[in-house]
Design a protein around this nucleic acid. Structure first.
Length: 649
RNA sequence: GCCGACUUAGCUCAGUUGGUCAGAGCACCGCUCUAGUAAAGCGGGGGUCGGAGGUUCGAAUCCUCUAGUCGGCACCA
């Protein structure tokens, strides 16, 4: 057989015997590379390390230190987990395994004994046996009929075989490790012995195929690494994520609480949390007004008919609080969103094209009956206040307005020092269009318009089908919570539907009536979610302008310098600084420690020396040393710090 | 909503196979010490062990139901 030509990433081309493997190629380059290699990437496709290459192509060696290498390892770990489960529970039905950014998982269904976290040690022990046995892993391709025989009536596997066969000319790939054979579409390590560093983490339910109408399987989660150092670092990362969790910090810093006896998902803002929220609220209102928004207040209760007209009742009835029957035929609804309210504002006057874009904004309190399992701290609640805004534009103003909103958003993010986010264009699901407002032309046009605007601005984004609102496509800004869950922070949504349903119009230059387009937009999400987000981002160490307590004054001796401390407090407070004197009957060290654990940006220690010179000894949060400053200078420093949204904390 | 685990003082947690097991630290209150950059000392108050049933001579501990929390899944206008 003729040699095949292998092209390397640097462009070099070398002949290899037909049927050579990635391993052969790697070894030909260097022994050290072969040691690090776990798989190949041949013509852009991940291939097994020992898979024969039978045509010309470009190769990349996938090594242990790449994300792809880690995925290969975790795929293998997932298969080892499946093997262990199979040995421990022969009757168990198997769903799918997965490798993720975080680790790996495998789904199972066992009628007699559902796997629970108590079983993890035994499963892990069995996995260790399999790893120790160092079983070679090989890929085999079977005909559909043989694959079906192999899975022996397992309902989930049978379905997977059929799907795989349908997608691949009746061929189904399986991986064998010892006697255990399993379906897998992922490239794997050469041997079970390669899965040296791993552990199981948790068990949780997961719907088969991700559909809530399907049965629920038990998903075992674990993680795996190539070396102990990375595993240890991952442990630390998980631990730090928990410390960053806004629910933990919210409790430690006394920001908010939720009392299940009073109502799940109904948060109470303690003074500290309320101060942060108030600061955010004042900031965003001022910012929006500067940018041409008109801020309004509208009722939290509204006639149910408005939500029937908007379509929300039809789409979200289950997630709304039940309407109040007032007894005389009137039905009042706790509003789940603010659009109809702002539409009322729009409709209150005859609108001229000269008024457009008309920007209506509100910190609108809304209530949604979120499913109990969805509730989480301040991130998912049943009463929330949304930084909401609706701009009403003429059709030819859409793109400009979209860009304006985006610019405003970027400005706001900069003020909060938010850097870690990504854009997602959310389209309707083309396979499931009945969920959405029925107007194909509108969807096509609107989606194209959003994409065009993003491309014009040169911004990177991912496109997500099925993530649109029922009335239109949107641009979402995605961030991550401390625990790594994705959440939407900002959103800009195009809406051609509500203006039609509510019969909105404006008088054009031609004297005729025209229909406006609505753009729904939220910059900083709800006060609840945004506060949670900031708490996690800053790890509770809020920058001075947001910190509930900005300055703590500690007299060395209350008796001797108490009057000076109080004089300083008055000066600072009069300038608008949130300042307290710590006059408790405690030692100075205790109070300094207390100020630090409460993450107060500035601690001022004042003793006889400071009193005499009218100075302060300043210690910033997180710093070990202190500096001496004239009290006047300190005041101007703090004020400057606040005014500039300084991020030093 | 679904699967699983969990729920003991304001907070974080101990409580072995049901039998002085109702505890600790922090916080809180009181007293003493008047402090120079991350916890002074002593003393005190505080919980019908999430709730409701049940088993038992006896339940924080076992069973059932229920609420909530957590981890996921689904949902997220």
């Amino acid at each position: 057989m003729a040699d095949i030509k292998i092209t390397f990433p640097d462009g070099a081309v070398k002949p290899f015997a037909n049927g050579s493997t990635t391993a052969d190629v790697a070894k030909s380059i260097s022994i050290s590379l072969a040691k690090k290699a776990v798989a190949g990437k041949f013509n852009g496709e991940l291939v097994d390390y020992e898979a024969p290459l039978t045509e010309d192509g470009k190769i990349e060696i996938v090594t242990k230190d790449t994300p792809e290498g880690l995925t290969v390892l975790r795929h293998t770990a997932s298969q080892v987990l499946a093997n262990a489960l199979h040995q421990l529970y022969p009757e168990m039905h198997f769903g799918q395994g997965e490798a993720s950014d975080d680790g790996f998982s495998f789904d199972t269904d066992n009628a007699d004994h559902q796997v629970s976290s108590d079983d993890l040690p035994a499963i892990e022990a069995k996995m260790k046996e399999i790893v120790k046995a160092n079983l070679p892993i090989s890929r085999e391709v079977l005909a559909e009929a043989d694959a079906l025989k192999l899975v022996d009536g397992d309902p989930y596997q049978t379905q997977l075989v059929k799907q795989a066969a349908a997608a691949n000319d009746g061929q189904v790939a399986v991986y064998r490790q010892g006697d255990f054979v399993d379906l897998s579409d992922g490239v794997q390590m050469p041997s079970t012995g390669d899965v040296k560093i791993f552990k199981l983490l948790s068990v949780a339910g997961a719907y088969w195929e991700g559909k809530s109408s399907n049965p629920m399987l038990q998903r075992v989660y674990g993680t795996a690494f190539f070396n102990q150092k990375d595993m240890d670092a991952d442990d630390v990362r998980r631990k730090e994520a928990r410390e960053r969790d806004h629910r933990v910090i919210g409790n430690d810093l006394d920001l908010f609480f939720v009392d299940p006896k009073v109502g799940a998902g109904l948060p109470y803002w303690m003074p500290n949390g309320a101060t942060i929220r108030r600061t955010i609220e004042r900031y965003i209102i001022d910012k929006e007004i500067q940018h041409g928004y008109e801020h309004v207040y509208t009722p939290v209760l509204m006639n149910l008919d408005a939500y029937k007209t908007s379509g929300h009742w039809e789409h979200y009835r289950e997630d709304m609080f039940p309407p109040m029957d007032m007894g005389d035929g009137e039905m009042l609804e706790l509003r789940p969103m603010n659009c109809p309210s702002h539409i009322q504002i729009y409709k209150h006057h005859i609108r001229s094209y000269r008024e457009l874009p008309l920007r209506i904004a509100e910190l609108g309190m809304m209530h949604r009956y979120e499913k109990s399992g969805a509730l989480s701290g301040l991130q998912r609640v049943r009463e929330m206040t949304l930084n909401d805004g609706h701009t009403f534009v003429a059709p030819d103003q859409i793109q400009d307005e979209f860009k304006r909103i985006l610019n405003l958003m970027v400005e706001v993010y900069a003020d909060f020092d938010i850097k870690d986010y990504s854009f997602r264009l959310s389209y309707r699901d083309p396979k499931n269009t009945e969920k959405y407002f029925a107007n194909d032309e509108m969807w096509e046009k609107a989606q194209k318009m959003l994409k065009g605007a993003m491309d014009d601005l040169g911004l990177d984004y991912v496109e997500a089908e099925g993530e649109a609102a029922f009335y239109g496509p949107k641009l979402d800004v995605q961030t991550k919570t401390a625990l790594g869950n994705e959440e939407t922070l900002s959103t800009i949504q195009l809406d051609f539907m509500l203006p039609d349903r509510f019969d909105l119009h404006y008088v054009g230059a031609d004297g005729e009536e025209h229909q406006p387009v609505m753009i729904h937009r939220g910059l900083v999400s709800t006060m609840e979610r945004f506060t949670a987000y900031l708490t996690e981002m800053y790890k509770g160490a809020f920058p001075t302008w947001l910190a509930p307590h900005q300055v703590s004054i500690i007299p060395v001796s209350e008796e001797h310098q108490g009057d000076y401390a109080e004089k300083l407090r008055k000066q600072l407070a009069a300038a608008g600084v949130r300042v307290t004197v710590d006059d408790r009957n405690e030692k100075m060290n205790f109070k300094i420690r207390d100020a630090q654990t409460h993450k107060i940006p500035y601690t001022l220690v004042v003793g006889d020396k400071e009193k005499q010179d009218d100075t302060v000894s300043v210690r910033r949060y997180g710093h070990d040393e202190s500096t001496s400053e004239a009290s006047k200078d300190f005041l101007s420093d703090v004020l400057n710090d606040i005014a500039s949204y300084s991020r030093e904390n």
